[in-house]
Design a protein around this nucleic acid. Structure first.
Lengths: 338, 338
DNA sequence: CAACAATGCTAAAACGATTTAGCAAACAGA
DNA sequence: TCTGTTTGCTAAATCGTTTTAGCATTGTTG
């Protein structure tokens, strides 16, 4: 790249003041009563010299960075990279740039990243809050810094959020298995206090109770990190001791790891146990018995998050908690007679 | 967030000049012979007032943005999101921020995104160049703007790149199938002039020739976008007309879509045909016959890319083309007697 | 004690843009 | 012709920081 052309350089060439050049190049020629002839020459010269405005200087002057932060748990997780892609595209349309960070579900990391992004001058934050981050989130809310929670929320913090209707999703999964004639349906969840997971658990439990199957309610909670051994243990208990006939995995990771374990255990789906997962994947679809799953409206979740955020940045100050509609994709893993 | 504290505010409180505050806060107290007593008071006051430096002003003054651009084809593609994660982490360590964009394998998009990122003031670029982007890449090279190509390269452009040793990878895949006794091995590739794909094709062809199996060389090329119908057609020809016994898919997407087609066609792996893919995935591992694949050293590719880039930004001006070692993960899909 | 060095600090310019105040010149109205 | 308005432009301040030049004051040396 050749050395940068500034507004001064253009001014010198055309023989006018830098201010005039700025006015013209910002389309305010009329407003500031610049002569048409001069305006034209300025524009042409800027073009010829390949002038590109210095965004940093613009930012300093205006106090706006046009930056927003997206903090997820892990950008290499397909769910969040799908989100990132959509946020990125939408932000770009709205003339914003996205800074992405990953917390690995760790509170300290989350706190640090919020700090770092604020230091970098982001004007707003889309945050996937990790377990235990309520205090941090509350502080954000109290500071009135534009923030939207994504995928997860806190019922008692008045902060905008864009999430799946988790309760309804688990209800749908449970209903479906019930409708297929399964009764002894159990749940594999994370060991967490995060509301999205708690909602899913409630959806399942309530549906089981309504069906008069309280006795069959089994919720197994596994560690969110390095969950494979926990899952294996839970599945062995459920299958061999509890004799379950249906399994709902509350996240994609749980389901994927669960499938590995079931394979190792030589448990056949759906012959030995019916399975419903969360979030689709090629692994689900290519499985010998394609897995029935809850499909999240990923695009909508992402779009709403950023649209709400931009509104907040523009001082249209309101708070919405969105609970978006899940969809059940029925495949072979949950069919009674495949 | 409370209103921003500037260096001037601190200066006023302590009763010194802004310059002194700046010097102290940048750890240059000694260098500029600031009194220890004063320095201490400045630091304490800054702490108390929760001073955070304004990065935009710093950038303007220094001409450094500490920004780098990462342009991939699609951040929601697992391979690239894995790359992004590593680049992000490494950049963060080095005090850089990453701006990520997706081109969708489209030249116009790529050109636009390079422009946009340069305008945003990135100091360097990590680029996955799409088909037909040689001219653009050459222009980048000629401008001497710090740039590193990732995953793909151009043999006749002197620009640093961090890629898999694609030739070797295809060789390994072919060798392996040959060693298992397969002979009529064919290839499914993209219809592209991108060198990484051409290298893979050569690796396969050369290995087949060495084995005296030139007659069995079949390379089918499918469209890079919306490839499913092409793949289906290619596979039907290969399986039913050419009677092949081995299949190498040159990318993860080709393999994944290929597996869907093979399932639809009721072709059993490896009984009817042995399969080798590129880049692992849960879908490969959970497949009824887990898929043998070429594993890329993703971490190394990403780390090298950013390390080379940072060196270039710091004027350590050299060009390296890296071809990193693949690894073959052998699973059931390519075993003669499973 | 004169000359000079070291110490501890400040003022001012600069980075590149935007915006406000205001100055001349041309023009209009009475 | 005098007053007032419009037109077309410029100078200067500003955003928050860093850096250079330099000014007092004190200390050291011959």
């Amino acid at each position: 790249m050749e050395k940068k052309i500034s507004i001064k350089d253009i001014a010198k060439i055309v023989g006018v003041s830098p201010s005039l050049v700025s006015m013209v190049l910002n389309g305010k020629a009329k407003q500031y009563r610049i002569g048409e002839e001069v305006a034209k020459r300025v524009k042409e010269t800027a073009e010829e010299m390949h002038y590109v405005p210095n965004m940093v200087a613009k930012s300093l002057r205006s106090g706006k960075t046009q930056l927003i932060g997206l903090i997820v748990t892990d950008i290499s997780n397909p769910f969040y990279s799908a989100i990132a892609r959509i946020v990125e595209d939408r932000a770009s349309e709205l003339n914003y740039t996205v800074l992405i960070s990953s917390t690995d579900e760790n509170l300290k990391n989350t706190e640090r990243l919020v700090e770092v992004l604020l230091n970098k001058g982001v004007e707003g934050l889309i945050l996937v809050p990790c377990d235990g981050s309520k205090k941090l989130v509350r502080k954000l809310q109290e500071s009135h810094f534009p923030t939207v929670l994504l995928d997860r929320y806190f019922p008692d913090v008045e902060l905008s959020s864009s999430c799946l209707d988790n309760y309804r999703a688990a209800e749908m999964a449970t209903e479906h298995l019930l409708s297929q004639g399964y009764r002894n349906i159990s749940l594999v969840a994370y060991n967490t206090k995060m509301q999205n997971i708690l909602d899913r658990i409630s959806g399942y439990e309530d549906r089981m109770k309504i069906a008069g199957l309280s006795a069959y309610i089994h919720v197994r909670k596994v560690n969110i990190l390095n969950s494979k051994p926990d899952i294996r243990k839970a599945l062995e208990e459920l299958i061999h001791k509890e004799q379950i006939d249906g399994l709902i995995f509350l996240t994609n990771m749980l389901a994927t790891n669960g499938l590995y374990c079931l394979n190792e255990m030589d448990v056949k789906i759906p012959r030995d146990v019916a399975v419903v997962g969360f979030n689709g994947s090629d692994a689900f679809d290519l499985f010998y018995a394609p897995i029935t799953y809850i499909k999240q409206p990923v695009e909508q979740i992402a779009k709403e998050a950023i649209d709400i955020l931009i509104k907040q940045i523009n001082k249209i100050n309101y708070t919405t908690k969105l609970f978006l509609e899940p969809e059940l994709i029925i495949q072979q893993s949950s069919r009674r007679n495949p």
